[in-house]
Amino acid sequence: MSIQHFRVALIPFFAAFCLPVFAHPETLVKVKDAEDQLGARVGYIELDLNSGKILESFRPEERFPMMSTFKVLLCGAVLSRVDAGQEQLGRRIHYSQNDLVEYSPVTEKHLTDGMTVRELCSAAITMSDNTAANLLLTTIGGPKELTAFLHNMGDHVTRLDRWEPELNEAIPNDERDTTMPAAMATTLRKLLTGELLTLASRQQLIDWMEADKVAGPLLRSALPAGWFIADKSGAGERGSRGIIAALGPDGKPSRIVVIYTTGSQATMDERNRQIAEIGASLIKHW
């Protein structure tokens, strides 16, 4: 067993022997301040990774656009098919120029040779490549099948209805392509620590998230040296922004954090800054 596999296998073990965790309302004060600064709703939840206990939450059962955070769930569904012998990570998928959609920095470079399922998941999570996500959605049967996968996990809230990039439209009061912070946090925890996926697939999923290259201005910008984070960000229309993450000190994750916002007129930089400040408060009061 590799060191990384050992780390993920012992996530519940280490967490069980940690000192009790206590909620700190100071972080919620910052979440509410972010709402004021952005002029928009902000949803927040913080779960203990081992027990699933909610440590703090704000608007945990209000719907927010998922945006690209759905790509972690998508690759979880792909990995479940791999575990069941219905898919192979090494299978190569070929596609054409007509398949390319807006923001496809990886797939646009491989029109000639195609990409493997493993490479597509890596591109979808680490670079948020939209064509990679659409190609992977095709392998599982489309958005409705991802929703069905989530329902089978016990998540009857999260739903995907459309493809990239239309799913980022974020129309107010439109339930399409949305989740709730509580539902997303619980589902992410199941994917990373539950028995739904094999140990190898859980490790692969967290490795992809740990290698995320496009979430630097968010929670990662607030992390002290030595902290662990595996995350996936999302951005959408109407001032929408979000991030889902597993993080913790001492090089291992111990909490799940989900943050979503929508309806702001603020710039992307300002949305990023507010999420980073929430992260800084979380870490300060850990």
Rank of each mutant, 00 (worst) to 15 (best):
L28N: 14
V29T: 13
V31T: 07
D33Y: 08
E35V: 05
Q37E: 08
A40D: 05
A40Q: 10
R41Q: 06
G43F: 00
Y44D: 00
I45L: 15
L47P: 01
D48R: 03
D48M: 05
N50A: 10
N50K: 10
G52K: 06
K53S: 14
K53C: 12
I54W: 14
L55Q: 12
E56W: 05
S57I: 07
P60H: 12
E62H: 06
E62P: 00
R63I: 13
R63D: 03
P65Y: 03
M66W: 00
M67V: 12
S68F: 02
T69Q: 00
L73K: 01
G76R: 00
A77I: 11
V78P: 01
S80C: 12
S80D: 15
S80H: 14
S80K: 06
R81I: 07
V82R: 08
Q86D: 13
E87S: 12
Q88M: 14
Q88T: 15
G90W: 10
G90S: 11
R92Y: 12
S96I: 12
Q97H: 09
L100K: 05
L100G: 04
V101P: 03
Y103K: 03
S104W: 01
P105W: 05
V106N: 15
V106C: 15
T107K: 00
T107A: 07
E108C: 15
T112D: 11
T112E: 15
G114P: 04
T116A: 14
R118G: 10
L120P: 01
L120F: 04
C121F: 00
S122Q: 11
A123L: 04
A123G: 10
I125P: 00
M127D: 11
N134E: 01
L137G: 04
I140S: 08
G141Q: 13
K144S: 09
L146K: 00
H151I: 11
H151F: 06
N152G: 09
N152C: 13
M153C: 08
D155S: 02
H156C: 09
D161H: 12
W163H: 08
P165H: 13
P165E: 09
N168R: 04
N168D: 12
E169L: 09
E169K: 10
E175Q: 10
D177R: 01
D177Y: 01
D177W: 00
T179I: 01
M180Y: 06
M180F: 07
A182Q: 13
M184Y: 11
L188M: 12
R189T: 07
L191V: 15
L191G: 01
G194P: 10
L196C: 13
L196Q: 07
L197D: 00
Q204G: 05
I206G: 10
I206Q: 07
I206V: 10
M209S: 00
A211N: 06
A211I: 12
D212V: 05
D212N: 15
K213F: 07
V214E: 04
S221R: 14
A222C: 06
A222N: 13
L223N: 03
G226W: 10
G226S: 09
F228C: 08
A230D: 01
K232N: 00
G236Q: 03
S240A: 08
S240Q: 12
G242N: 04
L247G: 01
L247E: 03
G248Q: 01
G251M: 12
G251E: 15
K252G: 10
P253E: 07
S254Y: 06
I259R: 01
T261Q: 13
T261F: 12
T262Y: 07
T262F: 07
S264N: 15
Q265W: 11
Q265C: 08
E270N: 14
R271S: 10
R271N: 10
R271F: 04
Q274N: 13
Q274V: 10
E277N: 06
E277L: 07
A280V: 13
L282G: 04
W286R: 02
